[in-house]
Design a protein around this nucleic acid. Structure first.
Lengths: 228, 228
DNA sequence: ATGTGTGAAGAGCTTCACAGCA
DNA sequence: TGCTGTGAAGCTCTTCACACAT
């Protein structure tokens, strides 16, 4: 969550350098919203329309897009096709990213089956798990590989992005091995703060935590009713 | 993600009012870290130690805890048991929250099985899905209920927290029905921005988006090597 | 001495308002 | 006239430094 600091190194001549982290987090949103609008045969879209589709404010959208050095046409709007390609390039969705998933429990299986990955240019190339009951079985057309072969799998796939969906106590060890093999981006579903060297990005998704945050707000609502 | 604004209504006399949103997001982290330390029979913990376990800076931890009106002992540290109870109360983990999951695909199933929920005081009380193939089957000891009975299920359970794990095009309709039945907190896994009335909190977890953000950073690393 | 609690400084993100271009 | 692009204001969160309790 905090994970990536990325100082931002004073704006260079080229765009794309020094894009705020918050903006990066929204780019996929815009990319997807554009996909929806494109199906409707829209060729030009205003910041207002696209912002609504993405669920953000128009000014925020404009500021975000301006960071990419994107040129809309003043008085008209943005060319959907061109903008979509722009974002796709920056986002890295233009190329195909091989992804390795470690941990094939319920969550790992769900992720392997998740259609949203393929739609965004990710290809799950390997599933890794230590359980003898799972190794060798097929999940979504992929044979589950034993954890001992993790290094070989990552190397062969040339993967730099990995998903850690193991129990919390195994997560750090797996991460260390992934990083050692050249993985520099990790999506962490284990409820532990992973320690990684500089230059490696970790994004943590803690489902229990998300619910806990909601519960906190509920708790507050209750208290507010009790003591107005 | 942006979802909750919650103005923060000028600090009241009691604590717990006007807790920054960012702090709320970290409380579950601390709660869990405390759980780990408590197993090790630690009775007092310093901000430095707890901060490291939670993966944040010591000053941030202190500031966060001070928001709760928590009193550690100067020169000593925080009493683990007391602090854990404090956070649990604020977080709402003290009570048990019934949760309804709508959409029993791979993801919904994974969530139903997710141990982290129970550990944090959530109890999945119902699984709802429209598919005739699923309705009536048992998942994790729960019988899947038909989508047409959504209203009854929510009412009977008295649930105010729900998880939407449906395809994107069904998400809004389901949400409307949930909100109408009194649900005020929604964890959204569908890749759509849900529209909800004031007072309803939505947290969005978009797995594809998380990966996309990582890919962006990877893309940037590549470009940095190409143009130093 | 040691480590919490906290005001103040600093950084980052969002919103606003309007200049500038089609 | 209409909508983008952007400097500046405003706000929230984070970090720093140090007073203060034990």
């Amino acid at each position: 969550m905090i994970s990536d600091l990325l100082p931002g190194a004073g704006a260079g001549t080229r765009p794309a350098r020094g894009v705020p982290d918050a903006t990066v987090a929204r780019l996929p949103l815009y990319h997807e919203a554009l996909g929806r609008l494109f199906d409707g045969h829209v060729e030009v879209v205003s910041s207002t329309a696209l912002a609504e589709a993405a669920g953000v404010s128009p000014s925020q959208l404009r500021k975000d897009l301006s960071c990419l050095g994107t040129y809309g046409t003043r008085g008209v709007g943005y060319d959907v096709t061109r903008l979509q390609r722009q974002i796709a390039t920056h986002i890295g969705a233009a190329s195909e990213w091989p992804v390795v998933i470690v941990g094939v429990g319920h969550l790992g299986t769900a992720l392997a089956n998740y259609a949203g990955f393929a739609a965004r240019g990710f290809r799950v190339v390997a599933l890794v798990d230590p359980s003898p009951a799972l190794v060798g079985t097929t999940v979504t057309g992929l044979v589950v590989t034993d954890l001992t072969e993790l290094e070989a799998v990552v190397r062969n796939a040339g993967a730099v992005i990995a998903v850690v969906a193991t129990p919390a106590d195994a997560a750090q060890a797996v991460t260390d091995r992934l990083v050692y093999q050249g993985v520099t981006s990790i999506l962490n579903f284990a409820s532990t703060a992973l320690v990684v060297p500089e230059g490696v990005n970790v994004r943590k998704v803690d489902l229990g935590q998300e619910l806990a945050i909601l519960a906190f707000h509920e708790q507050r609502k209750i208290e507010e009713i009790a003591h107005p």
